[in-house]
Design a binder for these strands. Structure first.
Lengths: 398, 398
DNA sequence: AGAAATAAGTCTAATGTCTAGACTAAACAG
DNA sequence: CTGTTTAGTCTAGACATTAGACTTATTTCT
């Protein structure tokens, strides 16, 4: 009913163990073969062979002997290679294009953001600009001795069956993956496209404040409000790709109608436009960035309307989050994107409501944190998915 | 960070392929070895060997030759054995104890329900009664030539670290699994305890209206309201086991305070007690069963208060479900337990709201269905988990 | 300084499952 | 009765893993 069954034959076994060893190296970073044998349950002989294969793929490097325990022969620590394998992450948002290149160790090797307004623009033009940026990053990577093995793209919309619907960009059923794939050089790992909240959640998991948390909800507040849901370290993906639409959870049954067809949606209360309007920041004064700066300035000055608007947004978020917490039972809630920058004012009202709602039932209350990667979490997450694919299937770079 | 890594060695490979073959047999029921080889990607030789092993475990039977294609030698169809392996499902609820025994084919071999009030009763007494019922079922199974290989229990509460909190039964941190395990004969598959909504969802998936659906939300309305979430055929389990608490999603931010600490929870509007009260069914007139019958009678008579009460419950459910649908993006919503019996009156208000809320964004709207297993879905699901464990690890019954 | 202890990593033989492809078995068509 | 088709079995060979002996490198004890 779900995936086609895959038998395990002898070389599947080797592939799986190769991935197992590599992932364990990634997790424990400098680690000796002997310890890897303990950790994975494989024998020392097998581990030696697998590590040799991974060195051949240039995914790991084996350093000189270093004493770890008190006595006995010192082990040779094995680590992820900081090159040449690298992943490219791309992001399209309402007001910028972004790209970054990460090596296997998670180090940011290149990073670039282009401010530009993509909201009115034709999807093909936007994607052409993104492809140009991507090609430039690949060229610069090659010059730096890096090999970009794959690309992933973060988009603020719903991805279903290779078509992208992104109302906030004015995209309707755009075959983004196909268009980009044609405009980029062939790579060993196929190009993937995913929702910005999903990739932001993964970015936090690998490189941000989600690192320790097992299960969490990542809120991506840009123009709309999306949620990336991570359960036990795994991204939750629905069958149709439109999970996590927190912006259209009902927070006030008697509230105003929403473009989604419902009424009283969170986006009507806590979306960027709604907050700016309620705070009295004129909606003609320029880019969303400058308008947000204006809002932050007023908040810092203690402006009454601004504080009230953000408090209302916080209470709306709280209602939606109490529902999400009761449904999903996460350890942590991470405020990302623009919400991270409002975290100082948002966290108090949200925290109070989340602790009250259902707190008595569960005993434990999720922790609220603000992303420190800010706008970078989705691009980082995108590049990270490429690296995760390499870790899951090391032979793909052969 | 999640599960300890398990290496694949040579006999792991065999176990995995054995499970693969068995699961494929379960899915396609009468199927020849040749077709199994095609389906699984294994060779005919291997399949023959695996089927022989499964026959040795008495999990499958191989029938006489039957012509399937037009010409050529007819194949010998292999099917799941309707015995001796069987699973026992148990359930505790506010007003009954239930048990059922299923064989591998999913056939109900024994089934029993004891009406009794477990709400005030001491947890140990209730569990002792349940154990007595279970022992009786095991004895009768043995007499019928069945071997009960494992037991699973459905409880209306949160199961965390082997302790059960079930406010509606008055249970606080009861070590139910340990208590029951001591009172039952040793079985080859360890006893498991799970939430009633989770097991109900699985019951629907295997034996009920969830059979075709890939992703769905199963609503279990008994005294409280819980949800079992199935994504791509897999049950969604949170790290702490308290996911699916739909009863405490906020449906009216200005609503009355709830025992959970929050305000305006769904349970305050659509819980059994709330509906009966709003419908004016006196809350001293006897068992919940008889009170529910009274409500159904009044609804059938077109009683105004009753209709209004159920409509209000439907609208509350709709708000919570719109949130859940936006967050989880299911194909189907299944009304179970008492809600199934009110489905005729509940579906219209819910359906309208779910179609409106977010419908324009997604294009596709989840289908609403009422469980036909009714009260039986959780017990069936419990017994089913035992059988699923056998299918996942055939050697466990060796 | 030399011997014993300890631990890392490598080598060799054995194990067990799978595959490939030849082979036998059972049906039907002409 | 022969040729064709498909099901299932048999045999030899491939290959990743294991167990355990062995080598190498370092510390500790005498």
């Amino acid at each position: 009913m779900t995936a086609p069954p895959r038998p395990t034959h002898i070389d599947t076994m080797r592939e799986r163990n190769l991935a197992l060893v590599l992932q364990e190296i990634a997790r424990r970073q400098p680690v000796t073969r002997a310890r890897l044998a303990e950790l994975t349950g494989l024998t020392k002989t097998t581990v030696t062979g697998q590590v040799a294969a991974l060195e051949g793929l240039r995914l790991v490097t084996s350093g000189g002997p270093v004493r770890e325990g008190a006595r006995g022969r010192p082990g040779a620590p094995v680590s992820l290679a900081p090159g040449p394998v690298a992943g490219l992450g791309l992001e399209v948002n309402g007001h910028y294009l972004a790209a970054c290149v990460l090596d296997l160790t998670g180090g940011v090797r290149l990073s670039e953001t282009y401010a530009c307004d993509n909201r009115g623009r034709d999807a093909r033009d936007t994607l052409a600009a993104l492809a140009a940026l991507a090609r430039q990053m690949i060229t610069r990577s090659t010059e730096a001795g890096l090999a970009v093995v794959g690309t992933a793209v973060a988009l603020p919309g719903v991805i279903a069956e290779d078509r992208v619907n992104a109302p906030n960009l004015g995209w309707d059923s755009v075959p983004a993956a196909a268009l980009l794939d044609d405009a980029l050089p062939v790579q060993t790992i196929g190009l993937t496209v995913d929702n910005e909240a999903n990739l932001g959640a993964l970015g936090e998991r690998w490189y941000g404040v989600g690192r320790g948390a097992g299960s969490y909800i990542y809120l991506s507040g840009e123009i709309g409000i999306g949620a990336g849901i991570v359960v036990d370290g795994e991204l939750f993906r629905s069958a149709h790709g439109s999970a996590g639409e927190l912006g259209h959870v009902v927070v006030d049954p008697d509230g105003p109608a929403c473009r989604c067809g419902g009424a009283g949606c969170l986006e009507q209360v806590a979306g960027l436009d709604a907050v700016l309007r309620a705070a009295g920041v004129s909606d003609t004064s320029g880019t969303s960035e400058s308008r947000l700066s204006e809002l932050l300035r007023r908040l810092a000055d203690g402006d009454h309307d601004a504080l009230r608007a953000v408090d209302a947004a916080g209470r709306g978020l709280a209602v939606a989050l109490v529902g999400a917490v009761n449904l999903l039972d996460p350890d942590t809630i991470i405020l990302g994107g623009l919400l991270a920058r409002l975290a100082f004012w948002l966290i108090p009202p949200i925290e109070g409501a989340v602790i009250r709602g259902g707190g008595k039932l569960r005993g434990r209350t999720p922790v609220l944190r603000a992303s420190t990667l800010e706008a970078g979490s989705a691009v980082r997450g995108a590049a990270g998915t490429v690296l995760a694919a390499v870790l899951a299937d090391p032979l793909s770079v052969a």
